[in-house]
């Protein structure tokens, strides 16, 4: 009913006279042009990467790399796969991204459940402790973790990347889940309790299934950062077999004398594709999640 109220009836007063519709139309057109120009600025560089990847290598090196390609080739992609172990980097990134996401969602949901649904004496304090983590810069953890890892033999492992990636993602995850859990009505829980469901059953049967939208948001936002993480991988990983995509891409630069830019940009295209596909498929859910996540609470 309140929904109907906000759907305002047209104002009784007639539109204020005097404003020429011509000026309004010009303003609207200007707005559209400006929005389009900025779209071009945002998208052109990415389009350029794609064009560079299908442009014949000689043309890229010799001619104007900013014009349209004279012909389209897939050779750059062949070389991209020959120059470095691209599939290995992708598999490693998948492992790290999947494992981190599972942990971020499961642990974030658990903490939020304990804080918001179960409740305990210092729950607000614990929530504050988590939230402070939002502003802690990741660089502060590099030296201590490097030292601790070398003591316990964790350097150069998947875990060495996953642990800080999850740790630094938990604050936002906990925040989003606690904000969402506020909207699950008390009565739902009370009814379940009356039916004899304990806290574990409620978690798996009620809270978790209701959280699907928040899970999508949390997973997507984190996947972007984890898939592209450079600093933790660069600090903790040395061996070729464990390199994720951002580290692997660096192998293309100058390793074999002059850089093969066409192959490098082909490799970039290959590595962006999985994330891009997920983004385009889940686009609406993601944008909705980002918008509501940021404006609620």
């Amino acid at each position: 009913m309140t929904l109907l109220d906000t759907h305002r009836p047209s104002p009784v007063r007639p539109a204020s006279g005097g404003r020429p519709p011509r000026r309004l139309a010009v303003a609207r057109r200007l707005t559209t042009v400006l929005v389009a120009v900025i779209v071009a600025v945002q998208v052109y560089p990415l389009l350029w990467i794609f064009l560079a990847s299908v442009r014949p290598a000689q043309e890229f090196a010799a001619g104007n790399p900013f014009a349209l390609p004279s012909s389209i080739t897939l050779e750059n992609f062949t070389r991209a796969f020959e120059l470095a172990d691209l599939p290995r980097y992708i598999v490693n990134s998948l492992i790290v991204t999947l494992a981190s996401n599972v942990l971020i969602v499961a642990l974030g949901m658990m903490a939020a459940y304990a804080i918001q649904v179960l409740g305990f004496r210092f729950s607000r304090g614990v929530l504050a402790l988590f939230l402070v983590g939002i502003i802690v810069p990741v660089q502060v953890a590099l030296v201590p973790l490097f030292i601790n890892y070398s003591r316990v033999g964790l350097l150069d492992t998947y875990q060495s990347m996953i642990l800080p990636l999850v740790g630094f993602a938990l604050p936002i995850s906990v925040y989003l889940f606690t904000s969402f859990f506020q909207y699950i009505p008390r009565e739902t829980y009370e009814a379940a309790s009356l039916d004899g469901a304990g806290p574990y059953r409620v978690f798996f049967r009620i809270t978790a299934p209701l959280s699907v939208n928040t899970v999508v948001t949390v997973v997507f936002v984190n996947s972007i950062f984890i898939w592209n993480d450079f600093v933790f991988a660069n600090t903790f990983v040395l061996s070729e077999e464990l390199k994720t995509i951002p580290l692997g891409l660096q192998n293309y630069i100058g390793a074999m004398g002059a850089t093969d830019w066409s192959a490098t940009f082909a490799a970039v295209c290959v590595t962006v594709t999985p994330l891009l596909l997920v983004f385009l498929v889940l686009n609406r859910a993601i944008i909705y999640g980002l918008e509501s996540g940021a404006t609620k609470g």
Binding site: L103, L107, G108, M110, A111, Y113, A114, I115, L118, F120, V126, L129, F130, G133, V136, V140, A141, V143, P144, L145, I147, N148, L163, P164, V166, G167, F168, L170, P171, V174, P199, F203
Partner: peptide, 20 residues
């Protein structure tokens, strides 16, 4: 529900700040 996330957070984020 609380301990696993809290422990990981302490090890990965809070302790390193203290250690620094």
């Amino acid at each position: 529900f609380l301990l696993p996330p809290l422990l990981l957070y302490l090890v990965a984020v809070v302790a390193p700040v203290g250690q620094s």
